[in-house]
Design a protein around this nucleic acid. Structure first.
Lengths: 151, 151
DNA sequence: GTAACTGCAAAACTTTTGCAACCAG
DNA sequence: CTGGTTGCAAAAGTTTTGCAGTTAC
């Protein structure tokens, strides 16, 4: 049973990023942001929407994911060259990738691992990255720790 | 003009990893390993092969790239969820990804950035990665520094 | 009313697969 | 010869596109 009451806050959030709060966007936003941090693919979100009785097309799911990403509500995670993952956690953090299952998980943040907040790449500086190509700046540093079962 | 003389060393290298040294594999190996480190996609290698007058099918290029990767001759680089890149440099190293052009470059190794040789993930340990999920071991740590033009 | 948005189906792409023909040893 | 390889074409899977119809405001 999905709560379908209009959500004043969600409407405002969408407006704030310049997106018209349509039925589909509100429903997808509820699925994405109403259940803690998630890592979704277009297909998994589409399946979740259908399972919740939300009427939406796959093309709209793709559009919405990209619009939310452009608006800074989502972050794209590249770990697998056959699928696009989107992360509802847009804070600086890194990922575990489970090679056996294809699943993704956030690497839990510890005090030691944190860099200066809001500083892209701050966390990697301690390991010696100082020289960038001319006229280039860091957009983001992606770190994926790929895991396999031990033994 | 491509040198097409049989290459005793290349034949030996392929045999060493258990691959039969066929015309196509030798030609692709020459393209891949005869011109310094490279980052190729299946399509770019296929185009390069055609341009060099090598008769090979795209399916064989895919097969060969995966066989070479499984044999440890190549390493797969995941930076873009729409394409598979392969790197002829199989040593521990990280990549720049140029968001504007989609190109990849190795991050030049400096003494400060190097970790213990042959220790997967050794380089990232200094930034605090200590706790892994139960019964898991690190297969590899991928670090991609995504760059955009400054200004 | 109007521009933005959605849904559907088709198209575009990359990658994989199945199988007959081919070739290295 | 014989099994591993190759080429082709078709299939599979994900993502994008074009356009008519719908919706938010």
């Amino acid at each position: 049973m999905v709560d379908t009451r209009p959500n004043v806050e969600a409407v405002k959030n969408l407006r704030d990023v310049g997106l018209r709060p349509t039925r589909q966007r509100l429903a997808l936003a509820r699925l994405l942001f109403g259940h803690g941090n998630q890592h979704v693919t277009a297909e998994s979100l589409y399946d979740g929407a259908l399972a919740s009785g939300i009427k939406v097309s796959l093309a709209t799911v793709y559009n919405t994911l990209h619009q939310f990403t452009a608006a800074g509500l989502l972050r794209q995670v590249v770990v697998d060259s056959t699928r696009c993952y989107f992360d509802t956690n847009v804070a600086e953090h890194q990922h575990f990738y489970f090679e056996d299952t294809g699943e993704i998980a956030d690497i839990p943040q510890t005090p030691e691992i944190s860099g200066a907040p809001g500083q892209p790449g701050a966390r990697i500086n301690p390991i010696g990255l100082t020289d960038l190509p001319a006229d280039m700046e860091i957009s983001r540093v992606d770190i994926v720790v790929r895991l396999r079962s031990a033994g």
